[in-house]
């Protein structure tokens, strides 16, 4: 339960910050977007910018964002967003999401995941083992929106 509460908190934060994406008039909407991370010099500092993915090569880091909006008149409960990672990318960092390293059978924080090794036994999972990511939003009020994000690089 602690885990769920944490998610509510972090998503509430992002709710306030997220720019309002344009949605069609569907009751519940889910919209995917991808940007490529570029490092730019600004005032002598290296900062990340997010560009349209017009040119993407292996090694580039991608920002996958899924925006949601409750356009219905009633609260939505147990909103679970599941995102299988495309095979051509590898997760670069953990975030406020659970991961699956077994094709979606089970989810949890990366640190709790293990994978079998050919010699027998298991080892701790790494970001490279992640096959799916999942966010849980306990409740979305009518009219509310938010977004979730993961970063992955092109293999």
């Amino acid at each position: 339960m602690l885990l769920v509460r944490f998610h509510i908190f972090s998503l509430a934060c992002s709710l306030a910050l997220a720019s309002a994406p344009a949605f069609a008039q569907e009751p519940i909407e889910l919209k995917g977007d991808v940007k490529v991370v570029r490092i730019a010099e600004q005032g002598g500092k290296r900062v990340e910018t997010y560009a349209e993915p017009t040119q993407v090569v292996p090694g580039d880091r991608l920002k996958f964002t899924t925006s949601y909006r409750n356009g219905s008149g009633q609260a939505v409960q147990n909103f679970v967003i599941t995102n299988p990672l495309p095979k051509a990318v590898v997760l670069t960092e953990v975030g406020n999401f659970e991961v699956s390293v077994d094709g979606g059978k089970s989810f949890g924080k990366l640190a709790s995941r293990t994978v079998a090794i050919p010699e027998g036994g298991t080892r701790a999972a790494t970001v490279a083992d992640v096959e799916q990511v999942r966010w849980t939003v306990a409740s979305i009020a009518p009219g509310a929106s938010g977004s979730v994000t993961y970063f992955a690089s092109v293999r």
Binding site: V80, N83, V154, R155
Partner: peptide
């Protein structure tokens, strides 16, 4: 990843109303 590969990303959401 070979040049020309398409990376396709789709998310799914489940919920109760």
């Amino acid at each position: 990843v070979p040049a020309g590969t398409l990376i396709e990303n789709t998310a799914t959401a489940s919920f109760d109303t």
